[in-house]
């Protein structure tokens, strides 16, 4: 038989490298934007979840439970094929960023909420007693402390966010996985294609995962 990793297949891969380069660039862009969105939503809804106001806590629960208990693929598929029936045709990159960002925002909200609640109540009281507003105390006193606790799990979220941008492949999103699927199904040279894709995801995710480990070690030492 011809090996899935035959040399001529690798040559074809090298010849068509720009296909993968474009996919890699799109994945990086989608991941960066989705991460920014997820962090923003995660912090806001995490604070909501820890706030002494019932309404915001309810909002936090609705968001987190709804997103965590439905598959990402369904959410993305809805944004892609469902919304157009309601007259909203979002560009595919926006669908990806929105889908992945909102999805991981829910997980980050839980991480942030747990982080805030791990900070002693006296910190908030100290801030309030000095004349800080609740939001101001959060921003200047609680969140900077929670950040230390929260950074390792947050970085893990970033890693899985990067990997989850591959759902874009399901909606012809032009990401790394899509181009790899497309190229390897045209040529059937799936061997080299998926090895390369794996390596490229590793290049993004490994530094993040290492960062998470280091932060975890640091948090362990100081705390």
């Amino acid at each position: 038989m011809v090996s899935p990793f035959a040399w001529f297949k690798w040559q074809a891969l090298i010849r068509d490298w720009s296909v993968f380069g474009q996919g890699f660039a799109n994945t990086l862009l989608a991941a960066a934007l989705a991460l920014a969105l997820a962090l923003g939503l995660g912090i806001v809804f995490g604070v909501f979840g820890a706030a002494p106001v019932k309404l915001t806590r309810v909002l936090n629960r609705i968001y987190v439970e709804f997103i965590q208990n439905t598959p990402l693929v369904i959410q993305v598929f809805f944004l892609y094929n469902g919304l157009p029936h309601l007259g909203v045709m979002l560009p595919v990159l926006v669908v990806g960023v929105l889908g992945v960002g909102v999805y991981h925002g829910a997980y980050i909200a839980e991480v942030v909420r747990a982080g805030i609640q791990s900070i002693h109540r006296g910190q908030l009281e100290a801030g309030l007693s000095q004349g800080f507003s609740y939001v101001g105390a959060m921003r200047h006193i609680i969140l900077p402390q929670a950040a230390r606790v929260v950074l390792p799990p947050l970085t893990n979220q970033a890693v899985s966010l990067v990997k989850n941008t591959s759902v874009l492949a399901l909606i012809a999103g032009g990401d790394l996985m899509y181009h790899a699927d497309s190229w390897s199904s045209d040529t059937l040279y799936y061997g080299p294609a998926y090895v390369l894709v794996g390596v490229l995801y590793l290049i993004i995710c490994y530094p993040l995962a290492t960062l998470a480990r280091n932060l975890e070690r640091r948090a362990g030492v100081s705390g």
């Binding site: 002693h120 006296g122 910190q123 009281e125 100290a126 006193i141 900077p144 402390q145 230390r148």
Partner: peptide, 9 residues
């Protein structure tokens, strides 16, 4: 406060 509540960071 009894527990000082200094900002540790």
């Amino acid at each position: 406060f009894q527990q000082f509540n200094l900002y540790p960071h």
